[in-house]
Every structure is written in structure tokens, then in C-alpha cells.
Amino acid sequence: EINATPKGWSCHWDRDHRRYFYVNEQSGESQWEFPDGEEEEEES
């Protein structure tokens, strides 16, 4: 699962919740759901 993350994302293990979470390396935002690989940036 770690190697399957889309480009620009990293996968980390949360010991407290015993599950993986994903970090967007560009924005620093994290989420529980597996990233779909589409950038959802809304910068103007």
C-alpha cells in the first residue's frame, strides 16, 4: 500500500488508530482516505 500511493503523496502508519493515513507532500494536508491521484487544489 505504501508503494501504491499516487505521485506527490506519502503513506504513514498511525499507531493510535492502527491504520494508514496519507499526506500530500506539496500542501502538507493529511487524510484517512486513499488519494485518487487527482490534484484538488483550488488556489486562485
Rank of each mutant, 00 (worst) to 15 (best):
E1L: 10
E1D: 09
E1W: 11
E1G: 04
I2N: 10
I2G: 06
I2Y: 12
N3S: 11
A4W: 12
A4K: 12
A4T: 12
A4M: 13
A4S: 06
A4N: 15
T5A: 05
T5C: 14
T5K: 15
K7E: 15
K7V: 11
K7P: 13
G8T: 00
G8A: 01
G8S: 02
G8I: 03
G8W: 01
G8V: 01
W9L: 01
S10P: 00
S10D: 04
S10Q: 08
S10R: 07
S10A: 05
S10L: 05
W13Y: 08
W13R: 01
W13L: 04
W13G: 03
D14G: 00
D14P: 00
D14Y: 00
D14M: 01
R15M: 08
R15E: 15
R15K: 15
R15D: 12
R15Q: 15
D16H: 09
D16P: 00
D16E: 11
D16G: 07
D16Y: 06
D16V: 07
D16R: 06
D16W: 07
D16Q: 10
H17A: 14
H17F: 12
H17Q: 15
H17S: 12
H17R: 14
H17D: 08
R18S: 10
R18N: 15
R18M: 09
R19A: 10
R19Y: 00
R19M: 08
R19D: 02
R19E: 04
Y20N: 11
F21A: 08
F21Q: 07
F21C: 14
F21E: 09
Y22V: 01
Y22A: 02
Y22R: 03
V23M: 05
V23S: 05
V23C: 01
V23P: 01
V23T: 15
N24S: 06
N24P: 00
N24Y: 00
E25S: 05
E25H: 07
E25Q: 13
E25C: 05
E25R: 08
E25G: 06
E25T: 09
Q26I: 04
Q26G: 08
S27W: 00
S27G: 04
S27N: 04
G28V: 00
G28F: 00
G28L: 05
G28A: 02
G28H: 02
G28Q: 05
E29S: 12
E29R: 11
S30K: 15
S30Q: 15
S30L: 12
Q31A: 05
Q31H: 04
Q31G: 04
Q31C: 09
W32T: 09
W32R: 05
W32D: 05
W32A: 07
E33G: 09
E33F: 03
E33M: 05
E33R: 07
F34V: 11
F34N: 02
F34R: 14
F34Y: 10
F34Q: 13
F34P: 14
F34T: 13
P35R: 01
P35M: 01
P35A: 04
P35H: 05
P35E: 03
P35L: 01
P35D: 01
D36E: 09
D36A: 11
D36N: 07
D36H: 10
D36M: 10
D36L: 08
D36K: 10
G37C: 10
G37Q: 10
G37D: 07
E38F: 07
E38K: 12
E39K: 14
E39L: 14
E39H: 13
E39R: 11
E39Y: 07
E39Q: 14
E40V: 14
E40T: 15
E40A: 14
E40M: 09
E40S: 12
E40L: 13
E40R: 12
E41T: 12
E41D: 06
E41H: 10
E42Y: 09
E42S: 13
E42T: 13
E42K: 13
E43A: 14
E43S: 14
E43K: 13
E43T: 13
E43M: 09
E43C: 15
S44L: 08
S44H: 12
S44V: 15
S44T: 10
